[in-house]
Each structure stands twice: as structure tokens, then as C-alpha cells.
């Protein structure tokens, strides 16, 4: 029984890693050259991204320190264009898994936040400041900067379309 509970506690992420390692062991038996070339490539990637992950950790600590749902909620009370601005900023700065933010979004929806603004918030969550170092490492700062701006612009367009489609005529 105890062993069964212990297995339940192991997250799916660990199962994923274990399965991947088993695949590698299988390849080691049947195709050694592929095993070693893949492992070499893996080492190259790991060595490249370790320093970036240290930076990611520091940025995550900083955002967790400064940005809380309370902080976001306070600024969502702004009006007009300012509200869009804070929704974009809130989406970008919000951290953690999305389900942590659903209660807040439900609360805000009940308080009159339009579907368009919710769309804008959710879309901008895709832009993660703490993960920017690793994104810049792979794609370059110019590409990431342009992509982020295009995504922010598109998030507003999407918000407007959703507002129309959801037939929301509440004053923003």
C-alpha cells in the first residue's frame, strides 16, 4: 500500500525522463553509434544552457517577489486604454501555471472584466520575461524583441475580435 502511494507521488515529468532513459538504454543495445552521437549532442546542449538557467532562476525569484495576483488585481481597476496596458503588463509579468490564475480571472470576469481583456491577458502570458535569456540564446535578441512586439499587438487585436464575437458591449 505504502509503495503504491509512493508511486502516486512521482510526477509525470519523472516518468517522462525514465521512459526517455529507457529508450536510450534500448538504443545502446541495438545502435551504439546513434546512442553516443545523441549523447554527445545532449552534452553540447546542456553545457550551453546551464548558465542561462541560472539567470532564469534569478529572474523567476524577482518576478515571484514583486508580482502577485493582488498586485495585478489592483492595477486591473484602471480605465480606458490604461486598462489594456495593465492587462498586457499583467499577462507578461504573471508567473506560474495558468490554473493558478483562473480563480483571479473568474473573479475579474464576475466584476465586469470583458472577455477581450481576458483574452489579452492570457495571450500575453506567452511572453515570459524570466525565460527571455534562453529564448534570446536560441533566436537572438532582435528576433525575440520583434516577435514580442508583434504578439502584444496581436493580443489587442484578438481581444477586440473576441469582444465583438462574444457580443460584449460593456464600456471598458
Amino acid at each position: 500500500m505504502k509503495t503504491k502511494n509512493k508511486f502516486k507521488k512521482i510526477s509525470g515529468n519523472w516518468y517522462f525522463l525514465i521512459i526517455t532513459i529507457l529508450i536510450y538504454l534500448f538504443i545502446l543495445i541495438f545502435k551504439q553509434d546513434l546512442f553516443f552521437s545523441s549523447l554527445n549532442f545532449f552534452n553540447e546542449i546542456i553545457l550551453k544552457i546551464i548558465p542561462i538557467f541560472i539567470l532564469v532562476f534569478i529572474l523567476m525569484v524577482l518576478t515571484n517577489y514583486f508580482i502577485t495576483p493582488k498586485f495585478i488585481m489592483k492595477h486591473f481597476k484602471e480605465k480606458g486604454i490604461k486598462k489594456w496596458f495593465f492587462v498586457i503588463l499583467g499577462g507578461i509579468l504573471s508567473t506560474g501555471p495558468i490554473y493558478l490564475w483562473y480563480p483571479l480571472l473568474e473573479n475579474l470576469k464576475n466584476k465586469g472584466l470583458s472577455y477581450g481583456l481576458i483574452t489579452c491577458f492570457l495571450y500575453n502570458r506567452a511572453i515570459k520575461i524570466p525565460l527571455l535569456p534562453i529564448a534570446i540564446f536560441y533566436f537572438g535578441w532582435k528576433y525575440i524583441l520583434i516577435l514580442s512586439f508583434v504578439m502584444i499587438f496581436m493580443s489587442v487585436i484578438q481581444g477586440m475580435i473576441i469582444n465583438k464575437l462574444m457580443n460584449k458591449d460593456k464600456k471598458e
Binding site: 517522462f16 546513434l34 545523441s38 549523447l39 532564469v56 523567476m60
Partner: peptide
């Protein structure tokens, strides 16, 4: 906060490691 951030990164650790392993294999394969 530092502990919780470390914990959330640790939760991602097997996923990231597994992904890099798989990506390496797929790219070579």
C-alpha cells in the same frame, strides 16, 4: 520565495532533461 522558485524549477528538471535527451536523439535519428 527562493525555496518555492527552486522547487518549481526542480519540478521542471526531469521534463527539461528528458526533452533535451529526446531532441538530441530525434535530431540525430
Amino acid at each position: 520565495i527562493i525555496f518555492n522558485t527552486g522547487k518549481s524549477l526542480w519540478k521542471l528538471f526531469p521534463l527539461i532533461l528528458g526533452t533535451i535527451l529526446l531532441v538530441s536523439l530525434v535530431i540525430k535519428l
